[in-house]
Design a protein around this nucleic acid. Structure first.
Lengths: 219, 219, 219, 219
DNA sequence: TCCTAACCGAGACGGTACGTCTAGTCTTGGG
DNA sequence: CCCAAGACTAGACGTACCGTCTCGGTTAGGA
């Protein structure tokens, strides 16, 4: 279901692993049309942007992409999987791979959290992201993929930055950085998803301030 | 859209609000069959538990409840609204209305956060709650209702408890309790929704510990 | 599958014949929309005339008739059944019910056989008739219905006329009229279906002449 | 479209008929794999016997024959053409080439007509024959080929036998043998195709008796 | 007490999209 | 350049639900 086609591992001749017991089918990934794949992914993103995920249909994606429906069903298990791969394709350069480290933990985190606020407020990202979170909630399989490919890499970057701060003596070394980073990130996500109160830079700053107090080195 | 039927407020004679110009419809709530309403709500909850929200259909609810489809369409705008009302019906006694206040803030919050962890881990609540969050993500209208009826009351309870703690000198009076409470609650929600790491009592305790450090009265 | 809706006999309360064993479904014929039925039948005939049976699709019929596909599937088991009912509807008044009897057997048969030639040559009837015969060849169920409703009534009319001739002393009373009538009708049908040689009035006359010699009263 | 590949006559150098202007295609018949051709024809007959013509697909034929789809499309225009060629291959030895001539017209015809009844009753021939007749009804192109290759040769054999009888003084020389033969053959075909009444030896005898009376030499 | 307006169960209707199947074309790699 | 294999565009299949719309049948008040 992801960017590596689920159904087929490249058939290495030395490891005829799976007996042809009841294999549903195994499309030959090496013959796959890259042209079609890109057209499908592009079309999916366009259509979600235009009408939202609820009105997104496989038929519409196929039509927009100039592709047969079967070409979608052959390579993806659900429209959510298509959209997910589209997001992975567009959404991740090495941009998000590393947090800045100027030596000033508070400043660095402020920059990043504010950027996160801006991203979540960007209407081009809002629709597909909500769609993915929405589908993810009820589809653990897909959820795992999304977490692994998009969410965790980002969280790991936070973890690295926090550990660096601990080593630099700017954060209490006894604190679990994993939990600390969730204190930073989860509130933003919570407001964005539940729309309880506006998601602003000021809010990000306040969250950061509170969380950093908990992280401060003990006397 | 919720437990009070959206379309019609009982026509108070002092407010002859809408002349029958092009009124979409105005079912007479006083004639409504409570029997059917309960059957529908029960059926909805059962079916979500059995097969998940994605496979929940109005037709199935109607069939299970022994009810005509129109009886659902008359009173609810969407299956999500039905499910939402079903959750409100089952899910809220005065239980969540107030947090305990033993005078020991940390102990009280620990109790409550651990209870929240337990609730989110309960498979009977897991499915419908995920369904609601999922729908909510793409339906702002419904999201508002859910926030208002289920989420905010709980958050307000936290807010009251934190203010009480401030007044008792157990928490820094300069801190925004609204943000503080989100630091407590959002991380639990985040782990539950995204299934990144297990959601345990220990995790709740760690979150609480970190957040309380930020809340501690300044010297 | 015919003009009396197959699935449901009117449920006479005194004869609850079939236990609800594994009934696939039983649409309520009394609620059936006559409007839709006619539109479907008309559309089917039109489309066969325009593009032939091979290109006739249920979707096209539904679209042309302004009807949901399910309304076709609900009441007919196949597109051939639709077309069949359409032919029954249009094709049979009491017109074909009785052969003329002027007292002159040869003349009467000549009239009727020539008329049959004309009918088979009429392009408006040619396409749907070929379609029905074609489907009928591989679908015994449908074949039975077609034989019963369209073919046999006509053949019986021939049989009656021939028996009358026998009683009037114009035909050998020992001859099997059923076989005799097939000697008259089958050759026309054969040429029409197989397109071996042109199907003309002259041919009909020759067939008649030959067959009547076999039928002549013995000295 | 038939057993001689329609698209290409072997390019005789003296007739450089088509410059490669926009020729649709011209497979080189000399390179054709006889192995594949036989496998395809066999597979087609097998599959028709197993599931009927309606469920016969090009893909299934290709799979059964161990052949690429293109190899079928290259050499035949339709599945009916494949089946037709298969029938021609299996179905015609010199068996049907000539009718017996013992000098006794009635006896000879009885033998042949009864044999025809037996053939039409043979379930192995029934399915493919019905399939061909069925397709033929709506496809004049194919119909012509079928008539030419299978039907007419047989009818011509009848014609020759009848003419011999005329010359021997056993049949009225003024009668059109073509029509006479259709009086014999068409009724059998009619009962077989339409399944009106059982097709038996007795029926064949009766048809023969009646028809021969028409053929008898005039006094 | 009857009348009449409404809700109610039921389910047929015009539709949309589903996921599958097959047609017929195109591409790749092997012989 | 044929062939086996199979991915491709295209579009019909038959099914499942959607949300709307009658249908009787019950169940209220209001006359």
């Amino acid at each position: 279901m992801t960017d590596a086609p689920a159904p087929s591992a490249p058939p290495s001749p030395s490891a005829p692993s799976s007996p042809p017991s009841k294999a549903p089918k195994a499309p030959d990934a090496s013959r796959r049309s890259e042209r079609s794949r890109r057209a499908i992914l592009d079309a999916a993103l366009e259509l979600v942007g235009e009408s939202g995920f609820a009105k997104l249909t496989i038929e519409a994606i196929a039509a927009r992409a100039g592709v047969g429906k079967q070409t979608i069903y052959r390579w993806w298990p659900s429209k959510a999987a298509v959209l997910f791969e589209a997001c992975v394709l567009k959404g991740t350069g090495p941009a998000a791979a590393e947090l800045p480290d100027t030596g000033d933990l508070a400043a660095d985190l402020r920059t990043v959290l504010r950027a996160t606020v801006d991203e979540l407020s960007d209407p081009r990202l809002d629709a597909p992201t909500r769609a993915l979170v929405s589908e993810t909630a009820n589809d653990p399989e897909l959820g795992r993929a999304l977490t692994e490919k998009l969410l965790e890499p980002q969280l790991q970057a936070y973890a690295r930055r926090l550990r660096a701060a601990q080593e630099a003596g700017q954060a209490d070394p006894g604190t679990d950085v994993r939990v600390a980073l969730e204190l930073l990130v989860a509130p933003l996500f919570h407001r964005w998803l539940n729309r309880t109160l506006p998601l602003t830079h000021a809010y990000a700053d306040t969250v950061l301030d509170l969380a950093l107090r908990g992280l401060a080195p003990r006397p």
